[in-house]
Amino acid sequence: MTEFSVTVEGETYTVRFSPEGEAFINGQHLPASIRRVGENLFSVLLEGESIRVLAGRSPDGLQVFCGGSELAVTVETERTRLLKTYGAKSGQASRKSEIRAPMPALVVNVLVSVGDSVAEGQSLVVLEAMKMENELKADFAGKIKDIRVAKGKAVEKGELLLVLE
């Protein structure tokens, strides 16, 4: 039986369900009725209260609402904990030399050319998303090593725009 470590707004609970569907929180049996009433909607009857929880997956993880608030929730199992341990090994200190698109956008302007020397804080690329312009600036003084995009191009979130060295 899988045990889930669920962190809700900083507080962590251990949750498991018995084969009969009974819920246990932190090892204690909880007289709760839990029903999935929609693809992303849960109804929980617990301690005399009827509670509606909206929970779904998004590209950034779980998206959870209750009582009108959006909540930070993470769920860990043995398997995800393992994945995280492996993943951590490949992590490295990142130098922000790769300028990436923080959101899907259109490239309105590229203000530099390959080989240009730029100062810290200098504007490099202008992106337009939903009619608002955003300037991406150099984190440090350096030289433009590579430019991957041109004016007018549509870019995805995280797409490499240019490289600074």
Binding site: F17, I25, L30, A55, C66, V73
Partner: peptide
């Protein structure tokens, strides 16, 4: 409410 959220997310 917090517990209800934990239960729902574990369910999911």
């Amino acid at each position: 409410e917090r517990k209800a959220v934990a239960l729902s997310c574990a369910f999911l």
